[in-house]
């Protein structure tokens, strides 16, 4: 019963919250749509936290997405043991990198008085949840080998069952507690996404790559000709 609620119902609640509130927040309060940077107040520790954290977690997220959307390619890649070891080794290294970055960021946020003065309760909650997520992830990688091998046969079909509105939560029932916690915590993060600084993920400024450098805004249509 509890598994049904946690892995069959809650994911939908989380996703609906994420989508609806994100859109609502963007349309009513676009001003708040960023992750209040504190680099201006403290820069040195931020460098050692932010850079490893973002690179580590970003690549791991992309790795998970590949596992979900291209499971066949992951299976094929893991066909030879050496490639599996390389993949798992890289993922573990990235996980540890993200963990170190996150610990630096957390220590900085709690320890630096300037940064503390711009910290909200939600920021602290996000940090705790992310810490749980990375710890359970690294724990899984260490104790339940080989993750990329079984992920595509358990998590991928589970997530697809959610996507096709026929949730098969029994995939999660038999999982070890670390993995269950990792999955549950993921949906908690999804649920708080629109209420927190995490929204900055969807404001990645990719359009900058092709826009012209200069921007001019006219109030009047200046093509108007007088003769």
């Amino acid at each position: 019963m509890i598994d049904l609620l946690l892995y069959g119902v809650f994911p939908y609640v989380a996703i609906v919250l994420a989508v609806v509130v994100s859109i609502w927040r963007f349309s009513t309060n676009q001003f708040s749509y960023s992750s209040l940077s504190s680099q201006f107040l403290e820069g040195r520790k931020l460098f050692w936290g932010s850079v490893p954290w973002h690179i580590g977690i970003g690549l791991l997220l992309i790795g998970h997405l590949i596992g979900v959307f291209l499971p066949a390619s992951v299976r094929a890649f893991n066909g030879a043991p050496i490639r599996l070891y390389i993949l798992e080794g890289t993922a573990l290294a990235l996980g540890l990198m993200a963990l170190v970055g996150l610990i630096v960021l957390a220590a900085r946020r709690m320890g630096d008085s300037r940064v503390r003065s711009v910290t909200t309760t939600m920021d602290a909650l996000v940090l705790v949840l992310l810490l749980v997520q990375v710890l359970t992830g690294v724990g899984t990688a260490l104790f339940y080998r080989w993750g990329s091998f079984w992920f595509v046969n358990t998590a991928t079909p589970y997530l697809w069952s959610l996507a096709t509105l026929s949730p098969k939560w029994d995939y999660m029932v038999s999982m070890p507690i670390t993995v269950k916690l990792h999955a549950l915590n993921f949906f908690v993060l999804v649920a708080i996404f629109p209420f927190s600084r995490l929204v900055h993920i969807v404001s990645a400024p990719l359009s900058y790559l092709w826009r012209p450098y200069q921007l001019v805004r006219w109030n009047l249509p200046m093509s108007r000709s007088l003769d």
Binding site: Q30, F31, Y33, S34, S35, L36, S37, Q39, F40, H200, S203, P205, S207, Y208, R211, Q214, L215, V216, R217, W218, N219, L220, M222
Partner: peptide, 24 residues
């Protein structure tokens, strides 16, 4: 973010507070 722009009519340079995402 493309938040800063030059006003065509008088050339005043402004930051759109709505569009700014604080990339600095």
């Amino acid at each position: 973010a493309g938040a800063i722009y030059k006003r065509g009519e008088d050339g005043i340079v402004l930051v759109s507070q709505e569009k700014c995402r604080g990339w600095r």
